[in-house]
Computed example of a mutant assay.
Amino acid sequence: MTTGRGPTQADKQAIPSVWTRPRRQREHLTRERIVTEAVRLLDAEGIEALSMRTLSNRLNAGATSLYRHVANKDELIELVVDEVYGELHVPTAEHRSEWRSAAAAAANSLRAMALRHSWIASVLGQVGLSHLGPNVMRMSDRMLAVFETAGFPSDETDRAVSTVVAYVIGVATSEAAYLSMISRSGSTEQEWVEDLRPALEEAARDHPRLIEGQVAQRGVDPGQVRDETFDYGLQCILDGLEARLAHHGSV
């Protein structure tokens, strides 16, 4: 027999996110300590090394103590992602003429963060409700303010921000994977490129356009090449967004 009663508040399942639970206070093992150590572990050994057991050992704490603050690995990932987003610098655009330089500075800050923490690219698709994190929310709000100052209508500001962020994360993901591979080899990026050059030239010998590009980059710092390539794509995106602004101004 059913009562016809709908689900009460007590019947509902909690939303599985670290940002929806109250924090524990006044304990020796704090959320801040856990997150700081988790970021250190990730930077040193990568995402494969991250586990609740490994982290509790590094903190000299029992697993039970850790689980009082972080329910599982998914919540831990939410926390570390928000932590590194706190490193981002998004300038304020006081005037409309400053929006483009502010957006470019924010994009470069995001790329630099992603390259410092190369593991982040592999977890961005599994961070749950990361947008509830205070640092992610702060960054998002400041970015939206830049594009509002630019003059984008309210229904486009979020899309404009998402376009820039998607470009940065896409490029930085490839860069981080490439740099991680070089790091594992024990070579510098310059050494890697020079060691690989004979094989590249052999593979490209029937492709004159590729050979021309390789010749142009001989002796050039590969980091500089990556910076210039990133900036080229970013400026193209900002050109497109500026064209959108001009369109809105003409209608």
Rank of each mutant, 00 (worst) to 15 (best):
S183R: 12
A107D: 05
G125W: 01
L210V: 15
I211D: 00
A14Y: 02
M52S: 09
A107C: 14
R24T: 14
L29T: 11
L42M: 06
W19N: 07
H69T: 00
T188S: 15
D221T: 04
Q25V: 12
L241W: 02
F152K: 04
V251G: 11
R159F: 10
A199R: 08
K12M: 10
Y232D: 11
Q126S: 14
A216I: 06
A14C: 04
V18F: 04
R100G: 01
G151Y: 15
A246P: 03
E94K: 13
G213A: 10
A199K: 10
N108F: 11
N60W: 15
D231N: 14
R205L: 04
V80P: 11
P153W: 10
A14D: 09
A112Q: 12
I169G: 01
E78L: 01
D11A: 10
R96G: 07
V161S: 01
E242L: 05
V80W: 01
Y232I: 07
D231K: 07
D239L: 12
E48S: 13
H89C: 13
E148G: 12
P7M: 01
A203K: 09
E78N: 05
Y67R: 15
T173P: 08
A177T: 11
L79H: 05
E191R: 09
Q190E: 14
V165T: 09
P91D: 13
S180F: 03
N108Q: 15
R100S: 11
V171L: 09
G125D: 09
H207N: 15
A177Q: 13
A61C: 14
A150R: 00
V35K: 03
T92W: 03
S122K: 11
R138S: 15
V146Y: 03
K12E: 11
A93C: 06
A176Q: 04
E191A: 12
V165Y: 06
M139G: 01
M143L: 14
V171D: 05
